[in-house]
Nucleic acid binder design. Structure first.
Length: 572
RNA sequence: CGGGGCGUGGCGCAGUCUGGUAGCGCAUCUGCUUUGGGAGCAGAGGGUCGUAGGUUCAAAUCCUAUCGCCCCGACCA
């Protein structure tokens, strides 16, 4: 493409709406434009990247034996009523009516539609296993769309759904998708990690997420430095401490702690570490009761784990202060587990909280804490469970190595769904005995648009985007300098451009009447991997200047054989 | 949905408190000069100040309502 004929100008200033770096760079480099909250138009330069991501996904899905289909974006509500999700989904599901007042949804996901397809088309076990996938726009009416295309309301997703006669076959299909995803993100040139994940509301038995590693990632992931264990922190298991609880050595004592409502102020006042303090959080129970969750002062509650506990409301909700005052007789800030059982409050403690002895906790009286408290002596033993987020240095649940924490952006998720949809929607096939069998399903998603933003989060510098080569919009940019004054520069640049094009290289020529600085800045903002400068200066010596986007210096390249030089660098 | 903030040429902002008929930088267009890291000079075009009411001789500015957008939180395959 000729940049002289490209109408979208790069922005020097960052639009005020953009907070994260990928969003800023995508706007500045003219990859996307916002239409409204969470909706973006993809401009030519951005769309090329999106299509490359899509192509890699498609090729690897095809290679894995999946079959591409295309389902409608809009779906009749009946299917959602049939699966039961019409009631389960909240306002995130965009609902509307057609002219006949028939209810529809804009698909946020396609389990219902694909299951409906399966029950119409699949009748025999001989047709299984099968994996249908599509690359399709989705709409989810997110409470708060943000970060540009990273968390948009409308986005492009690759969603695949597999059908299997039995669970063993599902496992094999799932494993094949794991391999396909690994191939996909590897081919894209991204640094990523597959981690065990919580299955969330989708349910099912096994689930793994694929995260692009980036410091700005929304998710924390934990992995062992001793083996290949890796899990989302939501899911990562926190082990009981290696050293058991010590003996009780001190009596319970009141401590005056006026206005000391946080662990931070408490440890400052008492000159102790947070690891010797017990923190008590009170949440709503299932039945209107309250439930107390005890953690060591230096640990953080894991909401996913907590809301799965028997008797705890799901979703997790911190109890209202008024309700706590009513039941416990004290405002939050001075809550402790002592005496709660007598008030009908169930007490759970994290493994490490349960291992404390002679600990400090709230006294359930304003401005008072207790010290020297011991489980079993001063209050009943709690229900011991895993309640906290793992922290860096925790032992790995596998027993090998320690956990390390990094941040990631979830770009893929694979699930073993089981028979949830096939059973509810009666998608059965005949097995080899001629009996009805309910297929096992898997579902596998990749956020195609999100991959683009994640790639930028992971690969950029102060000058702009640094595309991994497999997804760069163009491979090479030819930059003639001062061509207006030098017919020779223009000739050489045009010839090279034509050669590269003929050789099938994706090439840009910056034939704009612009100063060198402008051209360099734009090429770097766009993140084009290979840059060739054509200028009088080098032509005298019969050389051009080559520079890779990641390099900091120019390299001379011969004018004769320029094509071969570049092809070698591109790696073809 | 709770909390906070912002809507003024395409983009970034000032002006609002204290009412007097809109300004700066970037971008765009024209001309001349310039040409290896986002050029200089001269000139030009472009805004009913988100929208709708109200107060006033007079509203970007004050009042009311409303819409949109952003951030934090809760929420989220």
């Amino acid at each position: 493409m000729r940049l002289s004929q490209y109408p979208i100008a790069n922005l020097k200033e960052v639009p005020a709406e953009a907070e994260v770096i990928s969003h800023q760079l995508m706007l500045r480099a003219g990859l996307i434009r916002r239409l409204s909250a969470g909706q973006y138009t993809w401009l030519p330069m951005g769309l090329r990247v999106l299509r490359k991501v899509e192509t890699i996904v498609r090729e690897e899905m095809d290679r894995a034996g999946a079959l591409e289909i295309l389902m409608p974006t809009t779906q009749p509500a009946e299917l959602w009523m049939e699966s039961g999700r019409w009631g389960q989904f909240g306002p995130e599901l965009l609902r509307f009516k057609d002219r006949h007042q028939r209810e529809y949804v804009y698909g946020p996901t396609h389990e219902e539609v694909v299951t409906d397809l399966a029950r119409r088309e699949l009748h025999s076990y001989r047709q299984l296993p099968v994996n249908f996938y599509q690359i399709q726009l989705k709409f989810r009416d997110e409470v708060r769309p943000r970060f540009g295309v990273m968390r948009a309301r409308e986005f492009l997703m690759k969603d695949a759904y597999s059908f299997h006669l039995d669970e063993a076959c599902l496992q094999r299909g799932y494993a094949a998708m794991y391999r396909a995803y690994t191939a996909i993100f590897t081919r894209m040139g991204l640094t990523f990690r597959a981690v065990q994940a919580d299955t969330g509301s989708i349910g099912g038995t096994g689930s793994q997420e694929f995260h692009v590693l980036a410091d700005s990632g929304e998710d924390a992931i934990a992995f062992s430095d001793g083996d290949d264990y890796a899990a989302n922190v939501e899911k990562a298991e926190a082990m009981a401490p290696a050293t058991p609880r010590g003996p009780a050595t001190r009596p319970v004592t009141d401590i005056d702690t006026p206005r000391t409502k946080t662990i931070e102020t408490l440890t400052a006042l008492l000159a102790c570490t947070a690891a010797t303090v017990l923190k008590t959080l009170v949440v709503d129970g299932e039945d209107g009761q309250l439930v107390a969750l005890c953690l060591r002062g230096d640990h953080e509650l894991n909401a996913i784990k907590a809301q799965k506990l028997p008797g705890v409301a799901n979703p997790l909700h911190l109890a209202a202060p008024e309700r706590i005052l009513e039941v416990i007789g004290c405002e939050p800030g001075f809550i402790g587990p002592v005496g709660l059982a007598a008030r009908g409050v169930k007490v759970f403690a994290d493994h490490s909280a349960a291992a404390l002895a002679d600990f400090v906790c709230g006294a359930n009286r304003k401005d008072v804490h207790l010290s020297g408290v011991n489980w079993g002596r001063d209050l009943p033993e709690p229900i011991i469970t895993d309640l906290r987020n793992v922290v860096d240095g925790d032992p790995s649940p596998t027993g090998t190595g320690q956990l390390r924490l990094v941040r990631g952006i979830e770009v893929g998720h694979i699930f073993q769904l089981g028979q949830k949809y096939s059973a509810t929607m009666k998608a059965t096939v005949l097995d080899d005995q001629g009996k009805d069998a309910v297929p096992f399903m898997g579902c596998y998603g990749i956020g195609v648009t999100r991959v683009v933003a994640a790639a930028i989060e992971q690969n950029h510098d102060e000058r702009g985007i640094v595309w991994p080569e497999p997804i760069a919009p163009y491979q090479v940019v030819v930059v003639p300098l001062n061509a207006a004054r030098s017919p020779r520069v223009s000739e050489v640049a045009e010839k090279l451009y034509a050669q590269l094009q003929a050789a099938g290289v994706e090439v840009l020529i910056d034939d704009r009447d612009a100063r060198p600085g402008v051209k360099f800045a734009d090429a770097e903002l766009w993140g084009i991997p290979h840059r060739v400068v054509v200028a009088e200066r080098g032509l005298e010596a019969g050389t051009l200047e080559y520079r890779h986007r990641r390099a900091s210096d120019n390299e001379a390249m011969p004018l004769e054989g320029a094509l071969a030089f570049l092809q070698e660098r591109i790696g073809r």
